[in-house]
């Protein structure tokens, strides 16, 4: 089970990132849960200085942008395999 964290305090891009993650992983059989981290002190604790941030299994994979769906799937597969 992957724990995917979306770091961001409810800005438009944070919501879009969550949608993208769900849409990207919908058609894979990777089990995952999405956790939204909205408190700034928690966000900063991940060393993120631009939201939205994407954290998979406690590893920060991107910050300040919305990755493409194939990219998200690739990350998810790599973390699911390890």
């Amino acid at each position: 089970m992957l724990t995917i964290k979306i770091l961001g305090s409810g800005c438009a891009n944070c919501k879009r990132l969550e949608q993208e993650v769900r849409a990207a992983l919908e058609n894979t059989n990777i089990p995952f849960e999405v956790v939204k981290v909205t408190d700034y002190t928690d966000i900063v604790a991940y060393n993120v200085m631009a939201t939205p941030g994407l954290v998979i299994n406690e590893t920060l994979v991107s910050a300040g942008r919305i990755p493409k769906r194939p990219q998200i799937v690739e990350w998810a597969q790599q973390f699911a395999a390890s």
Partner: peptide, 14 residues
């Protein structure tokens, strides 16, 4: 923007 300015400010303070 709220996306970067507040986290960046806090990151600098931290």
């Amino acid at each position: 923007c709220s996306c970067s300015s507040v986290p960046l400010f806090m990151g600098f303070v931290q």
